[in-house]
Simulated scan of single mutants.
Amino acid sequence: MNFDLRLDGLRALVTGGTQGLGAAVVQTLVSAGARVMASARDVSAAPVEGVTYIGADLTTAQGVTHLAQSVLDHWGGVDILINSVGGSSAPAGGFAALSDEHWLAELNLNLMPAVRLDRALLPSMLAQGAGVILHVSSIQRMMPLPESTTAYAAAKAALTNYSKSLAREVTPKGVRVLSVAPGWIETEASIAFAGRLAEQTGTDYQGARQIVMDALGGIPLGRPATPQEVADLIVFLASPRATSVSGSEHRIDGGTVPTL
C-alpha cells in the first residue's frame, strides 16, 4: 500500500523548529518531501539539511513580523503553517505565585505567536484558496495542574478556542484549521526536568518519570509519547491526505484524559 502524504513541494513553516516536538515535525516534513522553513530563537541547534532557519523571538510582535516578512519575501506565502512554539517558565506555588508578568509571559509564548503569525500569513492562503494552519495545544487545557500550570493551561485553552473560531471563519474559504493536544511528550526539556526531579526526590530517572505520570493521574499506555509519534500525527493532519479534517482538536496522550 502506498501511503504517500502528497507533500512534495508544499511550503511549510514550523515555529519552534529546532528542539523537541518542533524539530521532529521539521524532520518529518522534510522526509515527506515538503519544503520547510523553521523559526527559533537559536537557529544553530541541530540544523536539518535543506531547511531554511529564521532566528526570531516570537514572544514579541516584532519577532513575529520579522518571521512573517522573511517567509513572504522568500516564498510569497505558505501552504502549511504549524505553530508548535510553546512552553512554560512559570514558578510552582499555585495561583498566588503568579504575577502579572508570569501571566503575560505565558500568553505571549503560548497564544500570541499563533494569533500574530496567522494574521500575517493567512491572507496569502486565502488569496490562493488553500492552506492548512495547525496549532499545538495541550491536554493541560482540560486538566491543569494547579501547583504549576494554571497560566500555561489557560493560555492553551485560549489557543484551542481561538482555533475553533478561526476554523469556522476560514474553512469555507479553503483554509483548514486544526489543533493537536499532546499529553506528556518525552522531549529534551522533559528529560532534563525528570532528571532534576530525580535529584530532588532521591530517586532515579525511571522513578522521576513515574512521579510525573502519577501527577497527571496516570498514563494508561504506561509511558509518555515520543516527539516522533506526535510529529507523525501532526504531519498527517497537515497533509492532503486529511483534506476533510478541519475545525477539530486531536488528542495524543496515551489515554491520560479518561474521556473520548
Rank of each mutant, 00 (worst) to 15 (best):
M1S: 14
N2M: 10
D4R: 10
L5Q: 09
T15K: 01
Q19G: 07
G22P: 06
A23E: 08
A24S: 10
Q27A: 15
T28R: 15
L29C: 05
A32K: 01
A34E: 01
R35E: 14
A38R: 04
S39M: 07
A40R: 13
V43Y: 14
A45E: 15
P47I: 12
Y53V: 11
D57N: 12
D57L: 03
A61N: 11
Q62F: 06
G63N: 02
V64P: 00
V71K: 02
L72P: 04
I80T: 02
I82E: 01
N83K: 08
S88H: 09
G94M: 00
L98S: 00
L107Y: 13
L111K: 07
L117G: 10
D118S: 13
P123W: 03
S124W: 12
G131M: 02
I133Q: 02
V136K: 00
S137W: 03
M142W: 14
M143P: 00
T149E: 05
T150A: 09
A151I: 00
A151N: 04
Y152F: 11
A153C: 02
A153F: 00
A154I: 06
N161F: 10
S163N: 10
K164D: 13
S165R: 09
A167K: 07
R168K: 14
V170M: 05
V175G: 05
A181M: 10
P182H: 01
I185D: 06
E188A: 13
E188D: 14
A192E: 13
R196L: 10
L197C: 07
Y205M: 08
Q206I: 06
L216I: 02
G217E: 08
I219T: 09
R223C: 11
T226H: 06
T226R: 14
Q228T: 10
E229M: 04
D232T: 12
A238Q: 00
A238N: 01
S239H: 08
P240R: 08
V245E: 07
S248E: 15
E249T: 15
I252N: 02
G255V: 09
P258Y: 02
T259I: 15
L260D: 15
